[in-house]
């Protein structure tokens, strides 16, 4: 049972940072930037490349996260701002196209085989009967810390106030002396950094390949929508719900129901889980699960 909690937490933390980033960007830019899932993979690849070049893991990761932030700001200035001037659906389709291009670039530069960090393999710990590795514990800790820092930024700093004001009412924010373009640029950078960190955390627990970004897209998008797009902290809850659904689908033994000993659904069905949740959310709670309780940002 505790293993289930651990599995859900681990999966949720795979999705959480990217989903929070996607939601934060949406709240200011008013379009879901699909490329965020690719920024996650980009962060992981860059960190691996830097580590192979001789940098220790932590500085590699920090540099990779910052580079992704800069790339995101450039893409935003060069592409997304212009596409947004045409319309938010244009920008969303554009971000899908950018994702495909990034995938192609990965294929050319890195090739189809998966890449890993050079990490010491440690024996799994036993906690209340559940198996968990040190790296998994670390990934939970980093995710929790990143979310906390982001929440403090959002609610306790001047930049956070400007972000929330711009998200609520762009024109009035301008009329209040907030440089809304600068604020949006900051959010684009912060969310890309969150996504890149998310990608690094996923890779710490396994590997990254050219498909990773696209595989993350559906569950991350579902988590962000479930949390109410534009409500970044809602995406935390969204990620947990999606992780629960996926874990239930893959970890539950359907054997007893079917009169056999062991029947597990293939892992590929997990995706179907997030897809079903996405469709149900769009039908019944299009503004997310938490709209009445959580302050919309």
């Amino acid at each position: 049972m505790f293993q289930f909690v651990v599995d859900v937490a681990l999966r949720a933390c795979d999705l959480m940072l990217i989903a929070v980033g996607m939601s934060a960007v949406y709240s200011l830019m008013k379009f879901p930037n699909i490329a965020l899932a690719q920024y996650a993979a980009m962060g992981a690849f860059l960190a691996i490349v830097l580590q192979r070049a001789g940098l220790p893991l932590v500085p590699s990761s920090i540099v990779a996260v910052l580079i992704v932030g800069v790339v995101a700001v450039l893409l935003n200035r060069v592409l997304f701002e212009r596409m947004l001037a045409i319309g938010s659906s244009t920008a969303m389709i554009g971000s899908l196209a950018v994702s495909m291009v990034i995938s192609a670039i990965f294929l050319v530069i890195i090739g189809p085989s998966p890449a890993r960090f050079n990490l010491e393999i440690t024996r799994p710990l036993r906690v209340l009967g559940a198996r968990i590795t040190e790296h998994q514990v670390l990934s939970l800790g980093i995710t929790a810390a990143a979310i906390s820092v982001f929440a403090i930024l959002l609610f306790k700093t001047d930049l956070g106030r400007c972000m929330r004001a711009t998200a609520t009412n762009n024109l009035l924010a301008d009329a209040t002396g907030i440089d809304t373009r600068k604020t949006k640029t900051a959010v684009v950078a912060i969310s890309a950094c969150l996504a890149a960190l998310g990608g690094i955390i996923i890779t710490m627990k396994g590997e990254v390949n050219i498909q990773t970004g696209l595989d993350l897209l559906l569950p991350v998008f579902s988590a962000a929508i479930l949390g109410g797009l534009g409500n970044p902290l809602g995406a935390v809850g969204g990620a947990i719900v999606i992780a629960m659904a996926e874990t239930l689908i893959t970890n539950v033994n359907f054997g007893p129901i079917l009169g056999q000993d062991l029947v597990f659904l293939p892992a590929a069905y997990a995706t179907a889980g997030s897809f079903v949740i996405l469709v149900l959310t769009l039908l019944w709670r299009p503004r997310g699960l938490f709209i009445s309780e959580v302050k919309r940002v």
Binding site: R164, A165, T168, N169, L171, A173, A175, K295
Partner: peptide, 12 residues
């Protein structure tokens, strides 16, 4: 500046 409509940050 006090705009004609939408002149508060409604969620704040």
């Amino acid at each position: 500046f006090v705009p004609q409509t939408d002149n508060v940050f409604s969620s704040m």
